[in-house]
Design a protein around this nucleic acid. Structure first.
Lengths: 207, 207
DNA sequence: CGGTTCATTGACCAACCTCAAAGTACGTGG
DNA sequence: CCACGTACTTTGAGGTTGGTCAATGAACCG
């Protein structure tokens, strides 16, 4: 089945190896920006701890969340391989620590360590699959299904257990991930709870 | 700027090299299927001539087109690198010729020819950027903008000229690419034509 | 020429969005 | 420990947009 690589761990390159090539760690405060949509890419980023969000902002302020990244995840790699600016902005969701390696050194590392190519291919492949799934889901499913699939995809990506688990997203986050409005999300999860597909206790969503 | 890799050329691996590893070409009739959503991946595919569409079908028959591929493009690679089924189905849009290489041989080729890793990284990066753009566009823009961005992204990806150019999509195709309905597309491009952003002559769209 | 696919139009409707107003939880600083 | 501010959640009323349905016309292919 599919994995929402952006929403969970998808382990990147060995931090020690990155440091060998000059990567430095860098502490981020909550809500601190990392890069902005359209900017040219100059670094490879990999998260050591914390959480990062990639998102787009529409002219009217509407937002769309491309994905979340956790410890071990890299992000913002595609424009390192292609002549293009960042497809979205990135920001720390909470206090985080980031490994940062310059583009040149990063490409050098890839050249000299064949096994890292395989890692990147895996990471990017996962990213493509995730995005294909999201596009499809958002294009052809009604709100309830859209939300349900998001939650399921996230669950199976982040855990192996079968027991009911709390969903790590706020309703607003679900809205931004699905392209819906908060109110629509709230109403949809209400129906999902009624039909028993999820349960809500103390405002927390379980599935 | 962004490139719609799936909609146009994004040259893959040297066909002769592929054949060295046992790739065989394979003729497809119009509308012939190549793989189906969910199927495990067993081959690397690269198009020699013709055109291929990747798409999802909803339970109610609703469709979403993930992208089109032309000569030189490869497609369906991600599940070769990740334990996952195909994220969508693929089908020939017209008579086409396909190079087909078994997964094992393909991975062997990648191992033995470092330069092909870079090609794949570039192709996948483009794919991620494209999909990020589409997700964003479909999530936060109204129909007119959605269509306009699709056409512009496709234009700049497929050409360098500044002169008005005919759009290679039918209205139905635009609908499937944007997650809209044919009628909505027709009405939206009507408005776009009125406002001068595009022009329509003999039912063909120019921009 | 007949069948098929693509395009178009209008009337109508429902789903989702907008706006407004409150309630609830949580963390921080006094 | 409490007060207050902030962020998240909830609900309802009402509006709009895009979807649905139905019917027709135009272009293309063999």
């Amino acid at each position: 089945m599919l994995q929402l690589s952006q929403l969970v761990n998808n382990t990147g390159i060995d931090p020690d190896l990155l440091r060998t090539y000059g990567a430095v760690s860098c502490k981020l405060k909550k809500a601190e920006g990392i890069f902005v949509e359209g900017m040219p890419a100059r670094f490879y980023f990999q998260l050591l701890s914390g959480k990062v969000r990639m998102y787009n902002t529409g002219p009217d302020g509407k937002e769309f969340t491309q994905g979340f990244f956790g410890p071990g995840n890299s992000f913002g790699e595609p424009p390192l391989f292609v002549e293009a600016g960042y497809p979205a902005s990135a920001q720390a969701c909470c206090e985080s620590v980031l490994l940062k390696l310059s583009k040149d050194k990063f490409l050098e590392l890839l050249q000299q360590h064949p096994e890292t190519n395989a890692i990147l291919l895996r990471v990017l492949s996962n990213r493509v699959l995730t995005k294909a799934h999201i596009s499809k889901n958002n294009a052809i499913n009604p709100p309830e299904v859209r939300i349900m699939e998001l939650l399921l995809a996230n669950k199976q990506a982040s855990s192996v257990s079968t027991i009911a688990e709390v969903v790590p997203f706020t309703r607003q986050e679900i809205a931004h991930l699905t392209g819906l409005r908060v109110e629509t999300v709230i109403r949809a999860i209400g129906k999902l709870a009624e039909s028993g597909k999820i349960s809500i206790r103390e405002r927390k969503i379980y599935l």
